[in-house]
């Protein structure tokens, strides 16, 4: 079956103002709204659109994380994913551990394509897609803003510093999404009800034969230095004067 595997991550919602815990042990997450990482939502939307165009028959969504992640998997099912896979794992999960778990799921599911967000907006690592592609020994096309499947290959337009780059890659492959690939759909209430009946399988890391390894200790979290508040100028002339005085113009 032509299948797309989408990896998602549960993160602190985009709109939450982040506060560092006073003891420096992390950021405040108690009572904070959690969501699907926005880039992963774009990944799922792209997979659903490919399926709707007839380019795939099944969209499987997967996550690696604690029990609460099932909320985000249910949201993904409500968006339209056919099945969900939850790899239960607690504590700090580094990209290598997550990629190893995803690789095990790939071996079970044999997807045509794996789509992930280009980075998670919590740790901003931006690694999992590339690490997975390396372990899998398959192509990667990161920062995708356009994706066309043509049989055995895909043509991917990537947002790079210079502009837009187009690659042709053999399938299967790993794609990571950039912001402008698509605009994810909203979930409708009846779909939330339907999603409750869709299959959600759980695994443990141990069952997949993955040993979680923490190679980087998280020593300390700190709030960033604050910029001094500046002054208001009344018009363009005062602004230009002020900038000239500072030697900036």
């Amino acid at each position: 079956m032509k299948r797309i595997l989408v990896g998602i991550k549960r993160v602190v919602d985009y709109n939450v103002r982040i506060r560092v815990r006073p003891d420096g042990s992390g950021v405040v997450t108690d009572g904070v709204k959690m969501s699907i990482n926005p880039f992963d939502e774009i990944a799922l939307e792209e997979a659903l659109r490919i399926k709707e165009r007839g380019g795939a028959e099944e969209v499987v969504v997967a996550t690696v994380g604690p029990a609460d992640c099932q909320q985000q998997l249910r949201t993904a099912l409500a968006m339209g994913a056919d099945r969900a896979l939850h790899v239960q794992a607690d504590g700090v999960l580094e990209p290598l551990t997550v990629a190893r778990a995803l690789l095990q799921l790939i071996e079970r599911e044999q997807p045509l394509l794996v789509i992930l967000g280009k980075q998670a907006i919590d740790d901003d690592n931006g690694q999992t897609g590339q690490v997975l592609a390396a372990l899998w020994n398959r192509p990667q096309a990161t920062y995708a803003s356009k994706l066309e499947l043509t049989g055995e290959t895909a043509r991917v337009t990537r947002e790079v510093d210079a502009g837009l780059e187009t690659l042709e890659i053999d399938l299967p492959a790993v794609i990571t999404t950039d912001l402008r690939l698509n605009e994810p759909r909203y979930v409708k209430l009846p779909d939330i009800m339907k999603a409750k009946k869709k299959p959600l399988d759980t695994f443990t890391l141990a069952a997949l034969g993955v040993e979680p390894r923490q190679q980087l200790k998280l020593v300390r979290f700190e709030p960033p230095p604050q910029r001094q508040k500046g002054i208001r100028v009344k018009d363009a002339a005062e602004l230009v004067d002020a900038l000239k005085k500072k030697g900036l113009l």
Partner: peptide
């Protein structure tokens, strides 16, 4: 991390 809203030492 968190779009620069926290600085992490690893």
């Amino acid at each position: 991390i968190y779009a620069g809203n926290a600085i992490l030492t690893v």
